[in-house]
């Protein structure tokens, strides 16, 4: 495999990041000067933003380094000031750079029509308007004012929701608020499974 200098720098920093819990692989030669240079090149002028890992609930601190010119995250590492992880991360936390920079991320709203064999790209405006119409239609048709016993229940029996433990607290709260205002009762998420 032929490596460009850039590839090599990428690999070396990935190797260090991935080895938070173990020792340091030297690959048979001293990598110290190369790593130091890589550090300077990648993060000089970068803006540091603290965040918390998106995977398990240990809640490790991660620092994102953002290139000020491009606005892109160019490097992520364990937050040494964080009292729980003190700079260390597991393999997943160490790889979060690949969440930020990943060409497989979905960047467009997609729609699949009934019985269609493919996705179509759509605009946000169109999609949200269509979804709102579906919600209203389903809700109005399935809304139960009174149950079989004649008790007032005011609920929407025809729509269900799952998700999500991946949302922020504030998002969880407004999500439950809008679902309950719509009358949904089938509201569930990862905590149950």
């Amino acid at each position: 495999m032929k490596l460009t200098r850039r590839d090599f720098l990428k690999i070396s920093s990935a190797a260090t990041a991935g080895l938070a819990l173990g020792g340091c692989t030297t690959m048979g030669f001293n990598m110290q000067p190369v790593q130091e240079q890589a550090w300077r090149l990648r993060t000089q002028d970068a803006k540091e933003t603290p965040t918390i890992c998106c995977y398990c609930a240990v809640g490790c601190g991660i620092l994102c380094h953002t290139d000020k010119r491009t606005g892109k995250v160019i490097y992520t590492e364990g937050d040494a000031d964080h009292p729980i992880n003190r700079g260390a991360l597991c393999a997943k936390g160490a790889a979060t750079y690949q969440v930020a920079q990943n060409d497989k991320r979905m960047t467009k709203v997609l729609y699949r029509a009934p019985y269609s064999t493919q996705w179509e790209e759509k605009s946000w405006d169109w999609a949200l308007r269509q979804i709102a119409k579906r919600v209203k239609d389903s809700r109005d048709k399935s809304f139960t004012r009174k149950n079989a016993k004649g008790q007032v229940v005011n609920r929407c029996d025809g729509i269900a929701s799952v998700g999500s433990a991946a949302l922020d607290n504030e998002e969880c709260w407004i999500y439950q608020a809008m679902l309950r205002a719509m009358g949904l009762v089938y509201i569930e998420h990862q905590a149950r499974i």
């Binding site: 933003t49 603290p50 965040t51 918390i52 998106c54 609930a57 240990v58 809640g59 601190g61 991660i62 994102c64 995250v73 992520t76 729980i84 979060t96 969440v99 930020a100 991320r105 979905m106 960047t107 467009k108 709203v109 997609l110 729609y111 699949r112 029509a113 009934p114 996705w119 999609a127 269509q130 979804i131 579906r134 991946a166 922020d168 607290n169 504030e170 998002e171």
Partner: peptide, 28 residues
């Protein structure tokens, strides 16, 4: 009918999450 809506990753928004020890930590 399926609507797929692409969302931001955790480092692309601001808000808090709560770890297993009940610590609510703010993210930027």
């Amino acid at each position: 009918e399926v609507f797929f809506l692409p969302c931001a990753a955790f480092m692309e928004k601001e808000g808090s999450i709560t770890n297993s020890g009940r610590w609510a930590q703010w993210r930027y």
